[in-house]
Simulated scan of single mutants.
Amino acid sequence: MSPKDGNTETMSIFSPQLSARFEALANKYPVRRSALIPMLLYAQDEIGYLSDAAIHEIAGRLSLTELDVRNVASYYSMLRFKPAGKYNVQVCTNISCMLRGAYEVYERFQDELGIGHKGVTKDGIFSLEEVECIGACCWAPAIQVNYDFHDELTPEHVPGILADYRGQARGKGGR
């Protein structure tokens, strides 16, 4: 039997805790497909990105095709198909952020990290991407680092933000 058949005790690439969470999510909704986006987010949190194996297993758990899962996942900029850094920096350059200096902030991140769009630093600590909107228009320009928001930024804020996350990566606290 497979997860598609409702058996969660088969081999899974996910931890037992996440497998149980997936089963609870799939049973929570009248239409199992409704659990797809939360499952994709939790899978990405656990393994770092949406691997072929993750997509295969999630599709099976929800009785969907892998193409269905990929089509949904590819629509959302927060979902990734390749590994990102420990801290994924997303710089919003939508109209509100752009008008208040988002491109200058983005350029400063590129300069400080030495990477471009969808790049990952050599040490694997940071990845960088330009995104369309993170829903923080009132506090533009804004960025999101994993699930943390930073708003009303200027290029001068960038080194301090990066230093905080570098400190966290080294186990020295930070935010």
Rank of each mutant, 00 (worst) to 15 (best):
G85K: 02
T65I: 15
V105D: 04
T8F: 06
I115N: 11
E156I: 03
R61G: 09
V31F: 05
T154F: 09
K4I: 04
T154G: 12
P3H: 03
M78V: 12
P30I: 07
G6K: 04
N94Q: 12
A26K: 01
S74D: 14
D123A: 14
L162C: 11
T121P: 02
S74Q: 15
P83V: 04
E57K: 08
L25H: 03
A140K: 02
A169L: 02
V72P: 02
L153D: 00
A54V: 01
A59P: 13
A73N: 02
R32W: 00
Y147C: 14
S63G: 09
P141C: 11
I37R: 03
S127T: 14
L113N: 11
R32V: 07
Y106R: 00
D148C: 11
Q110V: 15
L62R: 00
V145K: 04
E152A: 07
S2L: 07
S12Y: 01
E104W: 01
D5K: 10
E132A: 05
A53V: 08
E9G: 06
S77M: 07
P30R: 11
A59L: 13
D111W: 13
S77Y: 04
K122C: 07
L62I: 03
K82Y: 07
R21V: 05
M78D: 11
P155W: 03
E112G: 06
E46Y: 10
G60D: 11
N7M: 00
Y29P: 01
T93Q: 01
R170L: 15
N146K: 01
D164G: 06
T93D: 00
K28R: 06
I47R: 14
E23Y: 12
D148Y: 15
D45K: 14
N146V: 06
Y76N: 03
Q17V: 11
